[in-house]
């Protein structure tokens, strides 16, 4: 009933030309669909036997369904591998070898799994100035202070841990 009322309401709204909160943004898919678009629905055909869709549309829809079903079905009996002929196999192997030899500009880059990387001039890196004592001192005192601060962290609970809700 609710659905009926809704559609009546919509009709009156669309007749009046006013858009309200009950106006559907999308056009009603059932009432406005042409029979050709619904050709794949058995339900529709049984309800409207006289309005037969166009032959070509029906054919294409049927063939589409058939194709979709064929791709989705796992037909074990039809799984017949097409084996290559011996000469075809040899020919193709030879072809692959040739293509690999040519390389044809293909590159394969191996990302090196090692973390250590070669440095062209190690003397420079090794001869760099060491960290100054002042900096080291600063780092160690800061870390010390941070550690002390962390140790002194305490939770002070002032309220009860379990609070009864006053539900009337």
């Amino acid at each position: 009933m609710g659905c009926c009322w809704g559609s009546c309401k919509e009709d009156s709204a669309s007749q009046g030309g006013d858009a309200s909160e009950r106006t559907h943004l999308l056009v009603d898919p059932v009432s406005n669909n042409t029979p050709a678009q619904r050709a794949n629905s058995d339900d529709f055909i049984s309800r409207y036997p006289n309005s037969v869709p166009k032959k070509t549309d029906e054919q294409s829809a049927l063939s589409r369904i058939l194709q979709e079903t064929a791709t989705n079905v796992i037909d074990v009996a039809a799984l017949d591998s097409h084996n290559l002929e011996q000469h075809e196999y040899k020919e193709r192997t030879k072809q692959y070898q040739q293509r690999l030899m040519q390389g044809s500009g293909q590159r394969w880059n191996l990302s090196s799994p090692s973390l250590l990387v070669d440095i062209p001039m190690p003397e420079k890196v090794l001869a760099a100035l060491p960290l100054s004592y002042a900096d080291m001192d600063l780092i160690s005192t800061t870390v010390l202070h941070a550690n002390m601060a962390l140790d002194e962290l305490k939770v002070e609970h002032k309220e009860d841990l379990v609070v009864p809700f006053r539900i009337p």
């Binding site: 193709r92 072809q95 692959y96 293509r99 690999l100 390389g103 044809s104 293909q106 590159r107 394969w108 880059n109 191996l110 990302s111 799994p113």
Partner: peptide
Amino acid sequence: PLIEPLLGGLKGAVI
């Protein structure tokens, strides 16, 4: 993952 980098180059050679 170690063989993966090889495949890119080989795919071009496939008929």
